[in-house]
Structure formats: structure tokens, C-alpha cells
Nucleic acid binder design. Structure first.
Lengths: 341, 341
DNA sequence: ACGCCAGATTGGAACGATCCAGAGAGAGGG
DNA sequence: CCCTCTCTCTGGATCGTTCCAATCTGGCGT
């Protein structure tokens, strides 16, 4: 174990100890197949004895690569239920490790500027690549980074331009909602309502289309069963009340757990409880809230672990200047069944 | 704006453009007060024109500092309500930025080994310092890092050894719970129960002591009003039922929101609802779940933003090899009032 | 006119790795 | 016996910055 106050071992130190040149030690680490077995053995032993680890800064300087991936962390909205970032981050860090990469976090000075922060890291060669996550509304980062030929992978589709050539990974929200509709319809529900986001949200409309399509596929009507608004508990509550007052749905499929929590509140307001006997509710995100709220909110779970794996795969291709055979991935979510349905 | 495919500007480039030496450009950036005003002006203009930004790797190599802070991300327990890491991480990244630092995430190969992962980053000089967060049960990292004279700051007290010299920041759980007790007692509750964690948890016992002390200070009895168990919803539920069956508390103060959610479920099981008219419940962590569960769970909120600020302050001291005048900070949480109390 | 001094600027060396071209050692062929 | 070729290994140059010591400049006192 190298102690910090003692001088760290360097290539030169190891080389001397093993009686070889610097370059040979370097090769022992980076291209061991170049060494004669006995030499390799000797060098490896010296490395072990001295506890040598290559100095990152020096390596980065020479190879012009930092093996760091930048991720901009934007403030999560307080009071929204998701907390997806936590799960995603874990998987991402894990997947990156497999690929010899590390995740470097940064934030913007100016949160409203989607480009802020990228430039500084790039110009100083602090990171090799980016993972871009905040693509919910358009995605100027993509074209900006593309222009500069910076390797990056997006979590989220380029909705405005589905043909955009950059690599991305996304979750099939539509399929997820269709899953929810199937589940409810299988259980005999016919009046299944949608409580979702504003029309301006690409993601919201994608999820909603899963509801519309699957409802029609199963011969169910969607008329007067749809509500759109903000991603807040309050909206979910009001929308659920309004729908219950007018067209008496027997189930709600929601664009998010946040909205779904609102629907649950509406049911509570009316003294009725969700679940098999009452009105069913299905959320989206499988947030912690969905897991802990009684009696458990059925919810569509995004495969974030797999998303991270795919992102890193594409990232590796880009970093190796390799053309990915499949630069886009749309992953299927699954339905987590709980008490509310 | 420097494009990636074009050669990046270097000190030499700028120096030539400004008609000065490399070192002068370096000084213009790091010690501008050394330059004559007109020279400084000229150099700065050249820097701006060429879009020059110092190369991190080269700087790191020369100065033996990376300005990176390592943070080990350990898997959050699914189904526990907190999600504190998300909030903390944001604040930490933000505070670090002010100090010219970045946060580098890593994970352990072997999660059960609290030291795993630190060594590799350290040996390769990838980070200058660490923020250690997983100190809930003992804290071998601290002594390990201390031994190696690695700068680090812990989020969490060294419970086993309060005199330990390393810098740390923590939240006063005891005071937070006392706040909750006061709040409930002020509202007329006298039979206030504790639902907390195992005796082996330092944090759990600290929080509990806030309940015990404040109850006694206010002349209230704690006899047969305490339950201890796992940090799960299920335990909270069972414990609440048991207490309600035997000694009829009118309020629950819980060691976590997770446990509190269990208590809420117990009330729901009995057809009674929490709040002013029924049994009050107070949680701990102010998790997203607390915010979204109807009618809103009153909860003790940790000042994570301030924790991050203090951690970075101590970190800066350590990195500057400066002795902090106050290397420990215990911050007071606050009570977030909601419908359950 | 000269020396002195502080302030401003410079050029070489160093940080620790990898790239690159070339040297040394054997093996094999003519 | 020499030449070539391959396999190993080596030493110098280099990445872009900062450290360090030395040099240069101009103002001031005598």
C-alpha cells in the first residue's frame, strides 16, 4: 500500500527495480503480449512490490484522454415523485466502471441554458464524452455537441428530428402505458381514463399514445376520458375529481407517479379506496412513492439499469471512433403490480 | 469557441499571439497581479481570441492536484423512502463548483467492503480528496484515509470515537426529533410513541434520545411507548399496530419516513386517518414520499444543502493544508409541517 | 553617469506517462 | 559465415502546464 507522504512509485522507479526500461514497464501494463513471459513476470512483481499505479494526469496528458464522462445534474423538482436520477446514476457509474470510465458531475451556472457547463469541461479536456439526460424538451445539446464532434450519448429521443444521427437510448413509454391498459382491461375495466401532461410534452404525448392506441385496439372508447395538465399532485387530484364527476371512469392510467398520487388523493377525498374493489390507478416511473404509499401504487418501471448499460455501450463505440451497428435503443419498461390495481 | 477537430490553443499558441512568453500567459491566468496592466490586457485579449482554456491534464500533472473529489455511491435500498442522496448530491456538486472542484463518482466492486474503491483512485492520483458518506455504522474509511493522510470530510459523526480528529459534518437528529416532540406536545398530545431502529444503530439511538429527553423535559412518560426494529414499512406497520393495541398512543414519532409510512398504513388498516382529529404521525427525512402521500407526512428535514456547504468548506481547508478552526459541524434540522400532525 | 533595487518577463527543467524510431539478440536460410 | 527477419527491449522526444532561477527593464538616489 503506497502511503501518501512517501514518494509515489513511478514508471522509472519500477523500471529500475525490475532492471528494465520505462517503456517496458509501460508495455507490461498496456500491452503485456509484447513482453517475454519471464520479463513480464519480473516487471509485474516489481509493480506489485512497489504498489505502482500509473499516474492518471500524466497518462491523460500524453494520450489526450481522461476516461471521464461528464453528466450534468439538473435540479430535481421538489415534490415530484420520481427520483429516477438516483437509480440511473448508480447504474451509470457501475456500467462506466466496467468500461474503465468514471462519471464526473457538473451543474450549470444558469440552469435555463441547456448548453451551459459543457463548454468549460470540453475546452479544458476534462472529460472525453458526455451523457445527456435532460432531453425532455427539445435537445440543443445534441446538435451543439455533434457540431463539435464531441462523443456523447443521449438518454431520450430526438423527438423533433427522429432521423438525427447521434446515438441515443430511450424507454418506450407508449409500450409501457399500453401494458398498463392491457392489465386493467384484462381485469375487466372498460372506462379507463388518461391523466397526463401538457400537449407540449413529447414524452407525455408518447405515453398517451400508448393509451389511445391500446384502448382502440381493444375496442374501448377514449372519448371524454382524457385529461392533460401539469406534472403535479394537485393537477392529478383535480383532474381525477373532474373525470369522476363527469364520466365515471373505473380506472386511471397516469403519465407519472406524481399525477397518480394526485388521483389517489382524489379517491381518498371521496372516501373511496383504490384497488380491486374500487377505482384502479396506475402510475409511471415506479418511484419510491409508488412503493411506499398504501396499498402500493401499480406503476410502469423504466429499465434504467439496462438504459445505462446501453448508453455505455454506445459511448464506448463513439470513444473508439467505431460506428455502432445500432446507435439507437428503445427499451421496454415493465409493469410493477401493486395494490391500486 | 474552439472546435474539436482544430488544434486546441495552448499556452505556447497564446504566447506567440500576444508576443510574450509562455510563463507570462500562465501568470496572466494564475497570478494576474504580477503583470503590467497593459501586458495583462494584451494577453487576455489573445486568450479570448483563441478561446484558450488551460489543459487540465497538464496542469494536474504539474501541480499534482486534480481538483476532483471522490464520492462513493452505494446502492440505495429499494423501497426505503429517503432518496436523500439525490438532494445531497446536487448541493455537493454545486458547492464544489464554487470551490473550483468537481465530483467524481465511483462504486465498490465489493459493496460490503467499506474501503473498496478508495485505494485505486488514490493511487492513481485521480482525486485529491474524498467525501465519505456511508458512516452509518462505524467508519473504517476514516481511519484508513487518515492514516494515509488523504484529505477527506465525512458526512456523519464518528460515533464510536467522538474525539476523532478528522473533519466531519452531521445533522443533529436528536434535536430534530425533539422538535417533533415539541410540536406534538404543543398540540396537546401526551402519549407520544417512538417507532425507531435497532439499538445497534447509532443514528437511531441518537434520534431516539431526542424523544426520550424532550418527553421527560415536558413531564411526559415514555414508558411502554417505544418500539425498535428494521427500517422497513412492514416493521413500522406492525409496531404501530402493537402500540395502538396496547398503550394507545395519540401520536407517533418515527426514526424515518419509511417507518412512518408503515405507521400510516397501520392507521389505514384500522380505518382511522392520521391528522389533527386522529393519531398524529411525524417522520424523519422529508423524503419525496412524505411530500406526496396524502395528507402529507410531517417530517424532520435535514439541511442537506448546508451540510454540503460545510463539507466543502472543511474540504477546502484540508486541501489548503489549513487547520480548520472548527473541524466539526452539527447542523440543526427543521420540521416540515403537513397533514399528519 | 553609475550602481542599486524592485518589478516584469523569460527560458530551461520538470511533472510521469506514451509514441516512435531504432538497437540488440537470436533464429533461420542461403 | 553472413545476411535477413522477427522478437524484445531501449532511449529520446513529447504532451501542456507550472516551478524556478536568472535576466532584463526602468526609476531613483548619489
Amino acid at each position: 500500500m503506497p502511503a501518501r507522504h512517501r514518494a509515489m512509485a513511478t514508471l522509472a522507479t519500477v523500471a529500475e527495480a525490475a532492471g528494465v526500461s520505462r517503456q517496458t514497464v509501460s508495455n507490461a501494463i498496456n500491452s503485456p503480449e509484447l513482453l517475454r513471459p519471464d520479463t513480464l513476470e519480473r516487471v509485474q512483481q516489481a509493480i506489485a512490490e512497489l504498489g505502482y499505479t500509473p499516474n492518471r494526469a500524466a497518462r491523460n496528458l500524453r494520450t489526450r484522454a481522461s476516461h471521464l464522462v461528464g453528466l450534468r445534474l439538473d435540479p430535481a423538482v421538489e415534490g415530484s415523485a420520481s427520483g429516477l436520477m438516483d437509480r440511473f446514476l448508480h447504474s451509470l457509474v457501475e456500467s462506466c466502471k466496467e468500461a474503465g470510465l468514471h462519471v464526473l458531475l457538473f451543474t450549470a451556472e444558469d440552469v435555463s441554458d441547456p448548453l451551459d457547463g459543457y463548454d468549460a469541461l470540453l475546452a479544458s479536456a476534462a472529460v472525453d464524452a458526455f451523457v445527456v439526460t435532460d432531453t425532455y424538451r427539445g435537445n440543443p445539446q445534441a446538435s451543439w455537441l455533434e457540431e463539435r464532434q464531441v462523443p456523447f450519448v443521449a438518454f431520450g429521443r430526438p423527438w423533433e428530428d427522429p432521423q438525427a444521427p447521434f446515438p441515443w437510448v430511450d424507454v418506450d413509454g407508449r409500450a409501457g402505458v399500453a401494458l398498463a391498459v392491457d392489465h386493467l382491461a384484462d381485469r375487466g375495466h372498460e372506462r379507463i381514463a388518461w391523466v397526463g401532461w401538457q400537449k407540449t410534452s413529447y414524452i407525455g404525448e408518447d405515453r398517451r399514445s400508448g393509451w389511445v392506441e391500446r384502448m382502440h385496439e381493444r375496442g374501448l372508447s377514449t372519448t371524454r376520458l382524457s385529461a392533460r395538465g401539469d406534472d403535479t399532485i394537485e393537477f392529478g387530484r383535480r383532474a381525477a375529481h373532474a373525470l369522476l364527476d363527469s364520466d365515471q371512469p373505473t380506472a386511471f392510467v397516469c403519465a407519472s407517479d406524481t399525477v397518480a398520487m394526485g388521483a389517489l388523493q382524489a379517491l381518498a377525498d371521496r372516501g373511496s379506496s383504490p384497488g380491486p374493489d374500487g377505482v384502479a390507478v396506475v402510475g409511471f416511473d415506479d418511484s419510491v412513492a409508488a412503493q411506499v404509499v398504501p396499498p402500493g401504487l401499480t406503476s410502469v418501471r423504466q429499465p434504467l439499469e439496462e438504459v445505462a448499460v446501453q448508453i455505455v455501450r454506445l459511448l464506448e463505440d463513439r470513444l473508439a471512433m467505431r460506428r455502432s451497428d445500432e446507435p439507437h435503443a428503445i427499451l421496454a419498461p415493465e409493469l410493477r403490480l401493486r395494490g391500486t390495481s
